[in-house]
Each structure stands twice: as C-alpha cells, then as structure tokens.
C-alpha cells in the first residue's frame, strides 16, 4: 500500500441527521457506487483527504524509482536490464497519472512536489529500505509490488472517478511488475548457493517492511471509518495484511525460502495464517525520517529538482518565446 497513515480530514462519520442536504446527496451517490467527478459537489474534507492520499501515492511511485534504479546499471543480463528499465519507467508513469488525478482536485503537481521535498508530505515507508543485492530486485517486485496490488485492486472501485481510472490503468501494469519480481526470485532461489543466499537474505530484509506497508491496525479508528464510508479506503489495514500473508507464504514455500517468522502457522479454524506483527516502533522511526535511506532518498529527489530548475525555466522561457512569435506572425 503506497498510502499509509493518511489522516482523514473531518471529525468522523456523520449520521444522516447530522449531514447537510448536500452531504446527504453526496453520500447517497457514494453508497450507490456512482463515481464522483471533479466538477461534482463534494465535502471539503473528502477533497482534502483525497489530495493527501493520491499525493502520497504519487510521491511513492516517484521515490519508488530510486531503490530499483539503484540496480539498473548493474543488471546482470541485457534482458533483465530491459525489464527493469521498463518497470521503473512504468512507476514514473504511475506517478504522472496520479499527479494528474490530484490536479483535478485543485492542487498542482509543483505544489505537491514542494510538499514532498519539504517533508510535509510523505511517501511509503518501504522505499526507505536499501536494495543491496540483485535478489532485492526480485523481492521488491514480488513483495512490494505484491503488497501494492493488494491495496490497489480494491481501489479500482473507489468513489472518486479520476482516482479509480488511474488505479485501473496502474493495476494492469502492476501484475507484470510482480511477475517479473517473482521470476527473478525463482532464478535466484534455484541458482547457485550464493544466489540462494541472496534470495533468502532479501526475503529476510523485506518481509517485515512489506507488512508495514499496510500501516498499523486501524480497525477501531474513526478516521478510517470515514474514509471507508467515502469509499476512498476499501478495506482495513489488517484485512489487507492478512490477505497478503495468506497469498505470499505459499509462494515463499514454493521458492524453498523461509519466511523470517517463527510464529508463522496455518490456523485451521480461522482459515488464515497466524503471523508476527512487524516492529511498529521501527515503522514510526521510519516515518519520522529515521529509516536507513530516508535522508538519501529525499536528498536525491531534492537534488534532481534543484539541478533541474534551469531546465524547467528554459523550457518555459522557450515555450513563451514561441507563443509570442506565433502571435506576432498572426
């Protein structure tokens, strides 16, 4: 999940009696699974929450290029290099669709970017972990994209039209991302002893951070209840995390890799795996900026933005000159 700990604006779910007439009509449309479009009336808190959520999601796609970009120049074969390039290019494209969806809510891409760079807006905690071996390219595709898909598939049905449409486009590409990741893991897990070691090490390092992607338990949160009533959040964090564990454990077994959790057991009664919670104090540390790569990731983005200033200025200046010559010629 690329949107974590999104603070829902407002005071929680209102009863129909507490709602204004407009709010009641809006909620009825959401309940009837109608799509809300940018020009439609919407509660201010709905708009604000969506900007936070879509913005954070977009930022995650952008910062998410970095850990994988880290291996493009070291990819071990031409085909792997091409696949990884295509994948990272897709992620940049996802960022673009999402910024466009956010723009329909009245916030510009530049404004959102400034908020990312100033630290006011966050991106997913997962991208603050380093990619240390080639097997990490497998683990990221398999686990990180896998967790993202868990969250994004239900969001295809979200109430806000542009967000829903962006999710539909993105989900098509995400399944390719997960497959290529699993394919790398398979090659590594069935490879030489050194490759197997890399594969297990990657799973060890990425398992708990992947579970953290869903955010801490929110089943009793009033904010989550409001987001769910608005259908911009479709499941609780725990539901999605459980689904992810249930899907992933058999895949790890198939690879012959061990999930780093001594308490992991199949619970016949529940029909789900029981598993250990990640270390939530580590999660909060990462959110506060103390993850292993927070500083590097933000620095990379800030430098790219600052060093690109002259390019953006020049492109704008040139476009203006061209427009002026066109007017003069008319």
């Amino acid at each position: 999940m690329y949107a974590q700990m999104i603070k829902t604006a407002g005071t929680g779910v209102k009863s129909p009696e507490e709602m204004t007439e407009e709010e009641r009509r809006f909620q009825a449309r959401v309940d009837a699974n109608e799509k809300i479009e940018p020009k439609d009336w919407m509660p201010e808190d709905y708009r604000k929450t969506l900007i936070r959520q879509i913005g954070q999601h977009a930022h995650s796609e952008i910062v998410g290029q970095l850990p994988e970009g880290n291996w493009i120049t070291r990819a071990p074969t031409l085909e792997r290099k091409a696949i990884l390039l295509a994948k990272v290019q897709d992620e940049a494209g996802h960022g673009l669709y999402l910024y466009c969806a956010a723009e329909t809510l009245g916030v510009s891409r530049d404004e959102l970017t400034e908020q990312l760079l100033s630290g006011k807006m966050k991106y997913s905690s997962i991208f603050n972990y380093p990619t240390l071996t080639w097997a990490d390219m497998g683990a990221v595709g398999w686990l990180v994209d896998g967790a993202a898909i868990m969250n994004q598939v239900p969001l295809q049905r979200t109430s806000f039209g542009p967000y829903s449409r962006a999710m539909i486009r993105i989900c098509k590409e995400e399944s390719f991302h997960q497959r290529q990741g699993y394919d790398i893991m398979m090659k590594m897990a069935q490879g030489t002893p050194a490759q197997k070691k890399m594969a297990q090490d990657a799973l060890n390092r990425f398992w708990y951070p992947s579970l953290m992607m869903f955010g801490p338990s929110d089943k009793d949160s009033v904010h989550s209840a409001q987001s769910m009533a608005w259908k911009i959040k479709m499941n609780t964090n725990d539901e999605l995390r459980q689904k992810f564990v249930d899907q992933t454990v058999p895949q790890a077994d198939y690879l012959g890799l061990t999930v780093p959790d001594d308490h992991l057991t199949w619970n016949e009664e529940r029909g789900h795996y029981d598993f250990s919670e990640p270390d939530w104090s580590e999660f909060y540390d990462v959110l506060k900026g103390n993850g292993p790569c927070n500083v590097d990731r933000l620095t990379a983005r800030r430098e790219a933005w600052a060093e690109g200033q002259w390019v953006r200025d020049a492109m704008l200046a040139h476009a203006r000159k061209k427009a002026a010559t066109k007017v003069a010629a008319e």
Partner: peptide
C-alpha cells in the same frame, strides 16, 4: 542514459530517458 533513472529535471523527461535507454538496450 539509464544512469538518469529517477533523477531527471521533470517527470516527463524521466519517462522519456528511460524509454530511450530501453530502446537502445533492445
């Protein structure tokens, strides 16, 4: 060209550079 990945001045350029690198590797 692929060294630019994630560091271009604007998102559209990031996409275009990755695309160029991808074609060249192909």
């Amino acid at each position: 060209v692929s060294e630019w990945c994630g560091h271009a001045p604007v998102l559209e350029e990031d996409i275009a550079l990755a695309n160029t690198a991808l074609d060249l590797i192909g």
